[in-house]
Structure formats: structure tokens, C-alpha cells
Simulated scan of single mutants.
Amino acid sequence: MNLAGLSYGLCNLAISIDGGAKPMKYVSASEILPEYLLHEIQKYVHGSVLYIPSPEGRRKKWGQISGQREYLQKRNLEIKQLFRMGRSIDQLADSYCLSEDSIRKIVYKKEK
């Protein structure tokens, strides 16, 4: 959907719905809200874009949708295993294009 405004006199209202890590979709308030609720919201917001966050518990954690979180967990596990097998911090830093400090944080981090 596109950025559509709802006109009631001088008031335009578009609602931004938070869908997680994906780009937000703009929806005309008249398409999803009952008229009485729309008039109530217009008492507080006039001609603006309104952001409505997802309820707690429904939001995805960083990297869950893209797979980046899982990728980094696997990479870090591999780094820890190589370190235990005798690879040095500077070798790992060169192999993974990370700083030595980043490698130290990974290999010395205690598991929860």
C-alpha cells in the first residue's frame, strides 16, 4: 500500500504499522479503523503519520528475520572452537577480518 491520507476537513491521518525488521507499511486509517476510533484519534493527531508499535512479545529480536543473528552465532562458535584447538588471537582476527579485541570478546565470553 502507499502513503494514503484520510481527509476529514483539514485532518489527514496515515498510520505506520510496525511489522518487525521489514520496512514499515503505510496504511490509510480509514481502511483499518472504525469511524468512531478514527474521530477519537483525530482529537490528538492532525494531519500526521502515526506510528503504532507491535505489542510486546510479538516483536522479533535483531537479526531473526534476516538470519544475521544465527549466522553470527555459528561464526562465533567456530571461532571459539578454533581458539580451543590452538589458533592464536591474531590468526583468528586475520582469518575473520575482525579486530583482536573483537576476537578476545568472542573467545573469552562466558556462556549463560
Rank of each mutant, 00 (worst) to 15 (best):
A14C: 09
G19L: 08
G20T: 05
A21Q: 10
A21T: 04
P23R: 14
P23N: 13
K25T: 15
K25D: 14
K25F: 13
K25S: 15
S28T: 05
S28Y: 00
S28F: 00
S30H: 04
S30F: 03
E31Q: 07
I32M: 00
L33I: 00
L33N: 00
E35W: 00
L37F: 14
L38I: 04
H39L: 12
Q42C: 14
Q42N: 10
K43A: 11
Y44N: 09
V45Y: 14
V45S: 10
V45M: 09
H46E: 14
G47C: 13
S48C: 09
V49N: 10
L50A: 07
L50C: 08
Y51P: 07
P55K: 10
P55V: 06
G57L: 02
G57Y: 05
R58F: 09
R58S: 08
R58E: 13
K61V: 02
W62T: 10
G63N: 07
I65T: 10
S66K: 03
G67M: 11
Q68D: 12
R69H: 08
R69T: 01
L72P: 00
Q73I: 10
K74S: 04
N76W: 03
N76A: 05
N76C: 04
L77T: 10
L77H: 13
K80I: 04
K80F: 01
K80G: 02
F83N: 06
F83D: 01
R84A: 15
M85W: 01
M85Q: 15
M85D: 14
G86K: 08
